[in-house]
Design a protein around this nucleic acid. Structure first.
Lengths: 228, 228
DNA sequence: GAATTTAAGGTCAGGTCGACTTTAATGGGC
DNA sequence: GCCCATTAAAGTCGACCTGACCTTAAATTC
């Protein structure tokens, strides 16, 4: 059977000490006027990955290289789109505090909203709340054993910047001292620039760039709430 | 644009101290006569998950409940199928040494082959070698922080059975004593039956069932080869 | 009955972790 | 200029975990 295929993006960033997601206001039915994840149809001669990069560029004006982008999951409930059979491949994009989103070529308004808000039942069109929840959960667990948290930081960044990313995404305070010890000992994760940043207050902090390692070894385990 | 959607299955099991995958011999072009992962077209009124369960049942005769089944990734290279635009949602299924596969309703022959063989370049049709590699990698890394290894064991099983699963999938020997200590301390992973199994030789081993926990806490880290 | 085999449990040194303390380096208030 | 607040950075210490290794247990085979 023949179906339509779309790509939807969960674009996350940390702004104002909150995890936020980029949403657009829909300009056409169905769900006209409601908020939804940005996305669009897969075109004839492109892969899903390419479509995701294209959509990302259209929505944020970012060239993609600066962002982490990965396939999240494909959603296929026959009733998920009232127009007919449409399945969507969701992608997760993570980036530093991005330029205020430009309205895409499709002339829709785009906004950053806290995920806390957008994850509420009914906050987004289609099954996008579920997609967003899955994306946030993926990000949360990937902080444990990969270095993707650094994708939320503009280089160069400090250990404190990175810690704040963890605290915001996990929603819990972390001991600054133990966090530093752990993250600085993890292999090739951090690359010191040699410079220091003078904060508004307090001792200047050493600056780092992202290192080559993509895996955190040893991993950074949260004290786990029980997952079923 | 409208595309055809298929579901392909990476069905893994441990047989003869090897990780093996179920493959079928293709009865029609393209790739007629070649080996491929089992799969089929998504139907009108089902989700991808439902299609995967249906295909799994058709290929293995298993009711699905006994197996672990999860979505792996969706593959979408425009050139991946010579017949036209076909994207495929790959699923990963893990199970204990399964009944010798019955030829599916589509009358194709099905075989177990070692993944070592099937992962060789050109061993499978389409992009199925890549899909298989991704599936095996997913299984390998999930052994570290989940309890899915137990899905390869027929209940009840011994700690030694479970250790052999890890050894086969990771391709490395593990210290039996330390393995036992780690796995038995991990929370609600193992549930003792109280019985013992008399092996052909050696002291009888205590028998266990799968516990409620799906996450291994603390996780079981392999000494990691460097991933890029 | 001794050797073999696998299970199960113990020992011990070294590493990691969480909680906490101490020292360092800056800006702001006065 | 000097104390204070603030953040960074480093150190301490006991509890726990890990890997390597050893000992004991319980079955079969010869």
């Amino acid at each position: 059977m023949s179906v339509s295929v779309t790509v939807d993006l969960v674009i996350l960033t940390v702004r104002d000490d909150e995890l936020q997601v980029l949403v657009v206001e829909r300009g056409n039915p169905p769900f006209e006027g409601q908020l939804a994840l940005p996305g669009g149809y897969l075109r004839g001669r492109e892969t899903l990955d390419e479509a995701a990069v294209r959509e990302l560029h259209e929505e944020t004006g970012v060239d993609g290289i600066r962002l982490h982008l990965e396939q999240l999951r494909t959603y296929s409930d026959p009733a998920r789109d009232p127009r007919g059979r449409v399945i969507t491949a969701a992608y997760l994009a993570l980036g530093p505090d991005l330029p205020t989103p430009v309205a895409g070529t499709d002339a829709r308004e785009a906004y950053w909203v806290p995920v806390k808000t957008a994850m509420q039942d009914g906050a987004l069109a289609f099954d996008h709340v579920q997609i967003l929840r899955d994306g946030v959960e993926r990000a949360r667990s990937k902080l444990e054993y990969t270095t993707i948290a650094m994708m939320f930081c503009t280089e160069p960044f400090t250990v404190g910047d990175l810690r704040r990313v963890y605290e915001v995404i996990w929603g819990m305070p972390l001991d600054p001292s133990n966090f530093r010890r752990k993250i600085t000992r993890a292999d090739g994760s951090l690359e010191p620039t040699g410079d220091r940043r003078v904060h508004t207050t307090g001792r200047p902090a050493a600056l780092y760039r992202r290192g080559a390692a993509s895996l955190l070894m040893p991993p950074f385990l949260r004290t786990h709430e029980y997952a079923s």
